[in-house]
Design a binder for these strands. Structure first.
Lengths: 227, 227
DNA sequence: ATTTATTAGTTGCATTGTGTTACTAAGTTA
DNA sequence: TAACTTAGTAACACAATGCAACTAATAAAT
C-alpha cells in the first residue's frame, strides 16, 4: 500500500530591500485555489525536467522574474491539513535575495512588492512562510555577510551598513561594522570608483570578490573552541 | 492538470554520543525497496492522523524507539530522481538528539547504532542526509547549548565539555567553557548531588532549568549589533 | 574665494571578553 | 599520611569591541 496522493508544491519567498523596508515579491494567482489572490510565486514540481526542488525553485524564479542566479536557499518544508483547501499538503519553501532594482526594472512585470511587516490576507500559510524567511534572514544577517546579496553589483560601505541596520532593526557601530567587513575579506574596492551626486565626501564603491559572487556568504569563526 | 504522483516520505536521523563517537540509529528495512538493508527510520506520511511532518516524525520516532519528547528539528528536504529506484521522490528529513542510554536501555530493540564517520552502503541518499544532520549539529554546537540534549537528565560540567569536544572534534578551554555555560544561564546544580565512584574530587551534577527541558537551546547575542 | 554643512573614513583609547597559567579543593589509592 | 588525580577558581595577559574625537572630501551658502 503506497501513500495517498499528497499535494506537493515548491514556493519561493523573494525578498528585497526597498529604501529601508524589507519587501516580498508576490504575484497574482492565475488558477484555483485562491485564483486572483496575491500569493508567493510557486507551483508544482515538474519531475521530468526538475533535477530536484532547488532546480524547481530556480525554474520558477526564472519564469517569474528572469533572474538567473540570485541567492537562493532552502528555507524549510511546511505541511498539514489546514494550509490548502484541497486537503493535506506540503510546500517546500525557498527564499531568495535580490537587489530591489532587478525587480523594479520591470523585468518582472507581474510581481508586486509588499512590505513584510504589513502582510495580510495571504492564502495558504504563506504569511507564516514569509515570516520564517524574514526570521532566517535576520538571524543569518546577525553573524554573516548574507545581506550583500540585497545590494547591487557595486555599493558603498555606508549603504551596506544601512542594509544591515534595516534588516536587524537597530543601529550598528560604524567602526565595528567596517572592521567586521574587513575581517570577512569578501569585498574589494572598485579602483577609482566613488558614489557621486551627494553634497559630501564621496564614498568608495566596493564589489564582491570573484569567489563570493554566487550564492555564498561568510561566517566568522565559532564562539566556543580554542586551542 | 494536477501533479504526477511523487513518492514522499519522512526520515529521521537519530543521533547520540557513545563514548566520544557520534552514532546514528539505523533500522533494518522490512519492505522494498532495499528490504533488509540498514537505513534511516522513516516512512510515509499518514495524512489522516499526522498533523504535519513534524508530527509524522514524532510518531515514527515513538514507534521505533518509545521516545516521547527528544530534541527534534526539521533538517531539510531531499529530492530528486536518483535517490529512490521507484522514481522521482522527496524525503523530509528531521534530526533528533538523545542520550545514548535511552537507546541502549533496550527500549529500542530494532535499532542499530553506527558511528557517523563509518557509514557505508546506506540506501537512497541516506548517507548525505546523515552527514547534513551531523554538519548541522556541529555548526549549532559551536555557538549554542544544543549538545545538552545528548546528555542525560543529570550530568557534570566536565562531561558536558567532553560532549562538546567530541562533537566539535577539538579541545575547549575549561575556563572559557564554564564561563559560556554560566552565561547561557540554562543549568542549575542539583543540590548536594555529585558524581561518585572516581578517584578524585567529585564533580557537581547539573540539570537543565525547567524552562529549557523541551526542544530548546540557547544562542548568545549576535556578533554585529550594538548601539 | 571662503566659510559652512554633511557625510566618509581613520585613529586612539576605554571597556569588555577570552585564553592561559597557576593555584586550591576533595576525593581515592598506595 | 603521602601521592595522585580530576574539579573548580583566581589572577593576569592579551585580543576584540565600542566610543569619541579626529581628518578628508565634496557641494552649497555666503
Amino acid at each position: 500500500m503506497p501513500q495517498k496522493t499528497i499535494i506537493c508544491t515548491v514556493d519561493v519567498v523573494l525578498l528585497c530591500l526597498r529604501g529601508s523596508t524589507l519587501h516580498v515579491a508576490l504575484w497574482r494567482r492565475d488558477r484555483p485555489p485562491f485564483e486572483g489572490s496575491l500569493a508567493l510565486p510557486g507551483g508544482y514540481i515538474h519531475s521530468e525536467e526538475d533535477v530536484d526542488t532547488l532546480d524547481a525553485a530556480t525554474r520558477m524564479l526564472r519564469a517569474k522574474t528572469g533572474l538567473e542566479s540570485p541567492y537562493l536557499e532552502q528555507l524549510g518544508t511546511f505541511s498539514g491539513a489546514g494550509r490548502d483547501p484541497r486537503g493535506w499538503s506540503i510546500s517546500i519553501a525557498y527564499y531568495a535575495l535580490v537587489p530591489v532594482e532587478l525587480i523594479e526594472a520591470d523585468q518582472a512585470p507581474g510581481l508586486i512588492l509588499m512590505p513584510v511587516d504589513q502582510l495580510k490576507g495571504l492564502p495558504f500559510d504563506h504569511k507564516d512562510i514569509v515570516l520564517a524567511a524574514v526570521q532566517r534572514l535576520r538571524n543569518k544577517s546577525s553573524y554573516s555577510s548574507l545581506p550583500v546579496h540585497l545590494c547591487g553589483e557595486r555599493f558603498t560601505l555606508p549603504r551596506l551598513q544601512a542594509v544591515y541596520e534595516a534588516i536587524l532593526g537597530e543601529p550598528i557601530n560604524k567602526v565595528s561594522f567596517r572592521r567586521k567587513m574587513d575581517e570577512f575579506d569578501m569585498l574589494e574596492p572598485v579602483e577609482g570608483a566613488f558614489e557621486t551626486g551627494r553634497a559630501n565626501r564621496p564614498a568608495q564603491l566596493y564589489r564582491l570578490k570573484a569567489a563570493y559572487r554566487q550564492s555564498l556568504s561568510v561566517t566568522p569563526r565559532a564562539f566556543l573552541a580554542g586551542s
